[in-house]
Write a protein that binds this DNA or RNA. Sequence first.
DNA 1: TTGTAGGCGTTATCAT
DNA 2: ATGATAACGCCTACAA
Lengths: 335, 335
Amino acid sequence: MPKVGIRDVAKLAGVSTGTVSRVLNDHPSVTGELRVRVRGIIEQLGYMPDPSARSMRGKVSRLIGIVIPDLTNPFFSELVQSAEQAAARHGYNIIVMTSFDQAAKETDRIGQLTSRKVDGIILVPSNDFHTLKPPKGLPIVIVDRLLPGYSGIAADHRSGVRLGVEHLVKLGHRRIGFISGPKDSVPANDRLKGYIDAMELISEGKQNAAPLIAEAAFDYESGRSAGNYLLARARHERPTAIFASSDQQAIGCMRAAHDLGIPIPAALSIVGFDGIPLASMTIPRLTTVKQPIQDIAAAAVAVLLSKQGAPELGKPLLLPCAISEGETTSSPQPD
Amino acid sequence: MPKVGIRDVAKLAGVSTGTVSRVLNDHPSVTGELRVRVRGIIEQLGYMPDPSARSMRGKVSRLIGIVIPDLTNPFFSELVQSAEQAAARHGYNIIVMTSFDQAAKETDRIGQLTSRKVDGIILVPSNDFHTLKPPKGLPIVIVDRLLPGYSGIAADHRSGVRLGVEHLVKLGHRRIGFISGPKDSVPANDRLKGYIDAMELISEGKQNAAPLIAEAAFDYESGRSAGNYLLARARHERPTAIFASSDQQAIGCMRAAHDLGIPIPAALSIVGFDGIPLASMTIPRLTTVKQPIQDIAAAAVAVLLSKQGAPELGKPLLLPCAISEGETTSSPQPD
DNA sequence: TTGTAGGCGTTATCAT
DNA sequence: ATGATAACGCCTACAA
């Protein structure tokens, strides 16, 4: 069974290969009737254009490259999965590559993708120090870890956190603790700003709302010790609610509270950030601020395919987070 | 800056494009000195062969497709990541696709990969009922969820579980409970067999070793109720150790024990299965049987690139699991 | 609107 | 051992 090519379609349809090609590419100048007939033949023969030949002749490969630091990170794997879906909707496929947070690998990967003639690259830059050398003429969009000088798309961490803290405020909380991320991390600082924003809003209302901040890494264990720190004080000074900068921190903090005999949410409300799958598996289920990963991925793909204008250089596209209500939040007990 | 092609290299080196091509492909019939010189020019010009042109002319695309049910499953994302690394070592790249456990999507994805001229496909079949239509002439290797009639590679669940149970036996445990997976799952049954294997070994030693089995889904919550079921009996009848068929079950079971006031590992040892990252984040860290994901991925890639013979049809390649010792196991307390 | 033909960058075949 | 050249499958001027 010799592979069916564009010529076979043309022959069977009694037209030229050019016409078939034009039908394939939705070129406007093909008669309606003819177009339908050719489509029929294509279907009937099960013809599929050869992507290699296409990308050699034309400019497009219908391939998008995505380079991330670590696929085992749930955030990134969901990002890749969402990108794959979004790309598939446009007839594109995805090549994934992992940089393991090494700038050298990252550069190499980008080179490979360039020579593969991908139509665009979605990049989550490594944390390594590096100067990103932009492949000329190849659209690239930076995601999550924004870089100055590039089109960027990310969650709006700052207002996301504000959203979460305000949720606690609405429930009646005033002494709200905050577990921050590492202070050299850009997203961590954005999240901190969101907390401060929200707390300032309360203080203007003349309520007692001194910030109560513990700095920590994003992981579980750090969240646990930060939680211990925030909760190790007399009951009427202790926060009635804690906002954690990551779900892992939040879960660690739940553990700390549990070990201290503080019931959740009766005596302590907790809100996390990220919306990882694990958040809905804790007992009780964690209330968290969910990052719009699917939206981020879809926007990135849309930008690359020019379905959507790229964000301006200095002004990244920030997508809104949303609260996912679990069972770790309630109104505070009276003092 | 017009892109540098094979012709530019040839011109500068004063040879024909044919010769350059032969150098690129390590064709034996090129003089040593010439080969070196051409290599130099290639380096100097930063020439990179165009993969599209290559795959159009030749038979290979240096592309491998991988189709999995769900990338947010940690097992699969690690699998993909490992495959990417293994492929990169051979100069190959990976196209990922998600089937969402739908046979129709799976078929479609395989079709796309075929027309992309990938050199091989790694497939974790969907659980949907389906007849896999093998793309003729395109190497395909089934991973994890073995399918009759195809070359398959997976972890050796059965002896992996036996390993874990025997570990408990060596510590002195005899009343060892088992949380099984869903009974219509092939891997679940393999794991159950491993448990029975190990328990039969003990009974021959004339010890009390009646099997103590709870059936459950693979998830956290199911593990918790299965744990409750196994532990809801008088102390001298209660198992001193429990082997869970998944880490998620194991973690659920830890929770159940904790809620019942049974200290781990003092009064109860627990062993999980899978080796997901979360396993090392629990308190205490979970002892688990780790699947050799990297080995599986590497073997799959090697088979596709014919670096390694494909496993025979009826006889899948089973790779050994290994114990990852955490802090949830110890010798049992005297009754 | 449709057909014709050249060429994309590479590899393989056939000469030399 | 090396050089010249056709062919891979498709798209797109250009011609009709």
